[in-house]
Write a protein that binds this DNA or RNA. Structure first.
Lengths: 290, 290
DNA sequence: GGATTTATTCAATTCAATCGAATAAAAATG
DNA sequence: CATTTTTATTCGATTGAATTGAATAAATCC
């Protein structure tokens, strides 16, 4: 169905005249007449009572005109979505690693809701590997995760923020050198399969003093609870450590070589980069910098 | 805009495949592809990410598809109005004289709401003359009124019910002959310009004993209140007299020649009688007969 | 009742949608 | 990783629907 004829119909109802309506719709009177006639055949309905010279809408015609206005309303909403493409519009599917979802996401959402009220989001949390795969498969549009050392084929990384890594140990070990900690305490290992996990695994590997015992957890908050209870020490992004610390926790930077992770927005290399990635990226950068 | 391409779009979203969608929409794959391409140019928007082989909707594409579904919803509601034309559908504009609006209308509306739930009504009350004119002008579609002795040009009358006229006088005059009433009591005259008014005016004219005094009222209930208060006698449709009576009122039929009025549904002679008049007429007949 | 406004009809034209075949591109396969 | 298969795009030809302008018809105005 041609919505143009619906426009014509509601216009006719407005002005109660075919000829005026034709003018306003920028068409010939004859075209308009034909259009209404074909609309009547299409719907198999009599819209007008033509025994009046400006034909009058029939009762059914009025009902249909009213409904046509509703159709056009929705249609306007549709074209409205396409309006100015400087604005971010659409339903985006984002993936997030859990630490980001806790720390950055709330700020991100409130910020973006201001800047781009017509954008909406479907959010998933997951591990970096899974998220990468989902971006690659087109299941999600982009993901925020730790940037991998070897950038996977077909993916594009846009840096969001650099986060220092820090050790967190029970306060009574404040004086102990990092190298010796492993002899006294179990290392609490944040799930190694994730992006951040790889960084941590490096620490474990490179260290001459292998930790006596390793506890593997997939939950950042839980790791910190273990530390607070004096059950082990851990290595995590500094902002997360700070967020979860209290006076039972001693924080130290890494020894010598400073460790850090790089948060990045991951998207498909060849994806039609309709500037939306840039917008989302920018927003994440801003909220991370706050 | 062609709503067909919107259908295609939502179908594609459903099945996540151009070729399956093409089958389901009964079109060639190439046609479908072209259609989406032209939709993209029309809206000036990228709906699909074509770096996937079954092209994937972009975030904006998803938003637009969702909105397209809303447009189609309204469109279906529209074609739904045109469905089976045995059913009475539409927004009808009816005129009614006041006595009808009080007595018949409530029953009519509840009846028609059962029989034709998709019909709606705009109601006006007015005097017979005005209503006739409005029907003629197409301001309203039909009116229920007293049928005139001389049927006006271009109008069609369909009889609904015959109503006897009756006198109502204060009870203390129960024994008085109608001819003598006029000498003792003022005649309460229901507004003569209306259809029913003409009937009453006839009574006044034909009578040898002109009423001593005449009170003109445009309200049926008010007339009856005057009678109850013993301030006059009146001539009105029997159903209305009965409806408004109590024990202070004495009702008598007219003398000799029985008077009555004929209620009718008035519509334009040449109006496209799309059976809706018959339906409305029938319903009015039924509720009047109850 | 004739003039005027207003809508309809008709044939010609224009434009957009569709098709089928060939081509190109991504995904699946071994 | 090359091959095969699936899937979408492109192209030129065709079809059909929408539009136009001029002529006609119908209702309204005076």
């Amino acid at each position: 169905m041609q919505t143009r004829s619906l426009e014509t119909l509601v216009r006719i109802e407005q002005v109660q005249s075919f000829s005026k309506a034709a003018e306003l719709q920028n068409m010939t009177l004859s075209a308009l007449s034909m259009q209404m006639k074909s609309l009547e055949t299409q719907l198999d309905v009599q819209l007008f009572d033509r025994s009046f010279r400006p034909p009058k809408l029939t009762p059914l015609g009025r009902s249909i005109a009213a409904q046509a206005a509703r159709v056009l309303n929705e249609q306007n909403a549709l074209t409205g979505l396409c309006g100015r493409d400087r604005e971010l519009v659409g339903r985006f599917r984002l993936g997030l690693i859990s630490s980001v979802s806790v720390r950055l996401l709330p700020k991100f959402l409130s910020r973006i809701r201001q800047d781009a009220p017509r954008a909406s989001f479907e959010l998933t949390t997951g591990l970096s590997e899974d998220l990468s795969e989902q971006v690659l498969q087109g299941v999600i549009d982009a993901a925020v995760m730790t940037s991998a050392p070897s950038p996977p084929e077909g993916l594009r990384f846009d840096a969001i923020a650099r986060e220092e890594m820090a050790f967190a140990a029970p306060r009574q070990y404040a004086a102990t050198a990092i190298e010796d900690l492993a002899r006294h305490l179990p290392f609490i290992h944040f799930r190694p399969s994730t992006g951040i996990g790889n960084l941590i695994a490096d620490h474990v590997r490179c260290h001459t003093n292998k930790p006596r015992e390793t506890i593997i957890l997939d939950n950042l908050e839980a790791s910190m609870e273990f530390v607070k209870a004096g059950l082990g020490y851990t290595l995590l992004p500094l902002p997360d450590v700070q967020r979860c610390s209290d006076d039972r926790v001693h924080i130290f930077a890494g020894n010598g070589n400073p460790m850090h992770r790089e948060l990045a927005l991951v998207s498909r290399q060849d994806s039609s980069h309709g500037r939306w990635i840039q917008a989302i990226h920018k927003t994440f950068q801003n909220v991370a910098a706050e």
